[in-house]
């Protein structure tokens, strides 16, 4: 952990109480079950995993939109996990969020300029005319016309709406933007535009991102460090180059094996080692390795004993009893 860290998440747990089991015992969903990571200033930290793995819950916990059961979140030197009321509001200008669906995350009755101004209005930053100036500046920064502020959300296309959402997130000049699947709802041509916009804004403004996605190729394109999540926990964490050259966790391999490519031979997927089954319920996570039930390499030890995240040097950490001993089923990784 260095002084350059813009975000530090320590032992974060988010549990949701969902009533009682027949018999009276409490049912608790372990959405996020102890994750640690940090984001260096000016970089992008990616979180990948299947739906239900807890990726979005991490985003919401950082944004203070989900209750934090245990652990701490620091933005710079300020602990934001314990803030309440006015002090939380005051801190909010420093971290903003971009959501997946640009259709449901803009108020249809608010014009674009008002939408971008809203964070400034709520946080009472600047005078009204200064806020309008910031809104126009942000519109041009995200590649929209400065006069587009007079239009309503329905007058924009999906890609343009996502640009609006990014402009709104930028308005309060945050240090950190949490992006939850920001390109998943977009067409591939528009997806490329938004990814390149995010990269360019990062270079121009020194932004830091937490970037949540289920798409490994997108994560590889935009992220500097990656955490792979499974059922509320990180199973592997590494700098992006390290992860894609030398992934060591069987779950990471199975995500890589399932990726599609326009260059692949027809039926290539059928020849790869595909993962069967689906993740177990987060209400009653297995006591051993959470991936053991689907893992082709699992032994009795995996079922009985939970593997810790072990360090493999230069920030590469893997939670598998047999990490480094297994032969990756992906030929490209063996050659490396």
């Amino acid at each position: 952990m260095s002084a350059d860290d813009i975000l530090r998440v320590n032992g974060l747990k988010v549990h949701f109480d969902v009533g009682r089991k027949p018999g009276g015992a409490r049912r608790v969903v372990h959405a996020v079950d102890g994750v640690d990571f940090h984001v260096t200033k000016g970089t992008c930290f990616g979180i990948v995993g299947e739906s239900g793995s807890g990726k979005s819950t991490i985003a919401q916990a950082i944004m203070r939109l989900a209750p934090i059961t245990d652990g701490s979140v620091f933005l710079g030197n300020q602990q934001i996990s314990g803030l309440q009321g006015d002090s939380l509001r005051a801190a909010r200008q420093r971290f903003q969020m971009v959501f997946q669906d640009p259709f449901s995350s803009l108020n249809p009755r608010k014009k674009a300029r008002a939408a971008i101004r809203e964070p400034l209005d709520l946080l009472e930053i600047g005078t009204p005319s200064e806020r309008d100036a910031v809104a126009e500046e942000m519109l041009t920064a995200v590649g929209l016309h400065r006069d587009a502020g007079r239009l309503f959300p329905h007058q924009f296309s999906g890609g343009q709406r996502q640009r609006l959402c990014i402009a709104r997130a930028l308005a309060s000049r945050p240090d950190l933007i949490v992006c939850d699947e920001p390109v998943s709802a977009l067409d591939v041509a528009i997806q490329a535009q938004i990814l390149n916009l995010l990269r360019q804004l990062q270079a121009d403004m020194g932004l830091s991102y937490v970037f949540i996605s289920h798409d490994l190729a997108v994560v590889q394109y935009i992220c500097d460090d990656v955490g792979v999540m499974y059922l509320g926990e990180f199973v592997e964490q590494a700098p992006v180059g390290k992860l894609f050259q030398d992934a060591k966790h069987p779950y990471t391999w199975s995500l890589m094996a399932a990726a599609l490519s326009p260059e692949a031979e027809r039926g290539a997927l059928a020849k790869r080692p595909l993962l069967g089954g689906e993740p177990p319920s987060p209400t009653d996570p297995p006591s051993g390795c959470r991936f053991a039930a689907r893992c082709p390499f699992a032994t009795d030890k995996c079922v009985a004993e939970k593997p810790a995240l072990r360090d493999f040097g230069s920030g590469h950490r893997v939670a598998c009893h047999f990490a480094g001993e297994l032969e990756p089923p992906i030929p490209e990784l063996r050659a490396a």
Partner: peptide, 18 residues
């Protein structure tokens, strides 16, 4: 404009522009 997953040696260089 489709991002490609690059594994092993191909992942060594930084991401090519999309």
């Amino acid at each position: 404009c489709t991002p490609r997953l690059r594994l092993g040696k191909a992942a060594a260089g930084g991401a090519a522009d999309l």
